[in-house]
Amino acid sequence: MEATFAEDHICFQDYGFRGATVHPIGMVTPARIRDADWKAIDPEIRTTRGETLFVPRRQKPELEEFCHRHGIARASRYDAWGDLLEPFLDTRLGPECERATLGRLHEAGFPPAEVAGIRRRLTPLMHAYNFDAMVWEWAYLGLRDLLNAANAPIVAPALQDALGDPATFYTWTMRIADGTAPAAT
């Protein structure tokens, strides 16, 4: 993935997430950007349509400068995917931590049955990504990791195909990340 920052747009090349408006190449103008977070673990842009687009980490300063130049606000938001994917980390979390995670998810509108359903749907994919492919992430898995798992060649295509239509899956992940719709599949 590459991003080129021009005066009046950002051009994405080799954007590997099927379903994205900039896959595999595309452009975003300031008018299409709702906000951004250049301080996030994975720097991101949120479009006016609720899509999260990632920028390479090494380009944090360029993203920040572009946003300042165009009056695009920095906004940090609740990371539902970080909490939803927590069981797939290569670490053991105690019951107190799990209760806190489920509490945050509930406050964000995710009832326990829905959380369980999302996690059940993603278990084969995320196990293949973090354990079978030996990523061994122990601290944080988020939306970018989920999209990597759904698109990267390190995961068996059959597991990726089991997610259904890539564009539909991508839209589902974005709606959860944006908090604009119920997470039901």
Results as ranks from 00 to 15, higher is better:
residue 23 H to T: 08
residue 23 H to D: 05
residue 24 P to W: 02
residue 26 G to E: 01
residue 27 M to S: 15
residue 28 V to T: 09
residue 28 V to E: 02
residue 28 V to N: 01
residue 29 T to C: 04
residue 30 P to T: 08
residue 32 R to S: 14
residue 34 R to P: 01
residue 34 R to H: 10
residue 37 D to L: 06
residue 39 K to Y: 05
residue 40 A to P: 01
residue 41 I to K: 04
residue 44 E to D: 04
residue 45 I to M: 06
residue 47 T to D: 01
residue 50 G to H: 05
residue 50 G to N: 06
residue 50 G to M: 01
residue 52 T to Q: 00
residue 52 T to E: 00
residue 53 L to D: 04
residue 59 Q to V: 01
residue 60 K to E: 08
residue 60 K to Q: 06
residue 62 E to S: 11
residue 64 E to N: 11
residue 64 E to D: 06
residue 65 E to S: 15
residue 67 C to I: 02
residue 70 H to E: 10
residue 70 H to A: 04
residue 71 G to Q: 05
residue 71 G to L: 12
residue 71 G to P: 14
residue 71 G to E: 13
residue 72 I to L: 01
residue 72 I to S: 00
residue 74 R to D: 08
residue 75 A to G: 12
residue 76 S to Q: 12
residue 76 S to M: 12
residue 77 R to Y: 08
residue 77 R to F: 02
residue 80 A to I: 07
residue 80 A to E: 05
residue 82 G to L: 01
residue 82 G to V: 01
residue 85 L to T: 09
residue 86 E to W: 07
residue 86 E to A: 15
residue 86 E to R: 12
residue 86 E to D: 13
residue 89 L to T: 06
residue 90 D to R: 01
residue 91 T to Y: 03
residue 91 T to A: 13
residue 91 T to W: 03
residue 93 L to F: 10
residue 94 G to I: 12
residue 97 C to R: 14
residue 97 C to W: 09
residue 98 E to H: 14
residue 100 A to M: 05
residue 100 A to F: 04
residue 100 A to C: 04
residue 101 T to V: 15
residue 101 T to G: 05
residue 102 L to W: 03
residue 105 L to S: 10
residue 105 L to H: 06
residue 108 A to T: 03
residue 109 G to A: 09
residue 110 F to L: 12
residue 110 F to Q: 09
residue 113 A to G: 11
residue 114 E to D: 06
residue 114 E to T: 03
residue 114 E to W: 05
residue 115 V to T: 15
residue 115 V to K: 13
residue 118 I to H: 02
residue 119 R to P: 15
residue 120 R to A: 13
residue 121 R to K: 07
residue 121 R to Y: 10
residue 126 M to F: 07
residue 128 A to I: 12
residue 133 A to N: 12
residue 133 A to V: 07
residue 133 A to M: 09
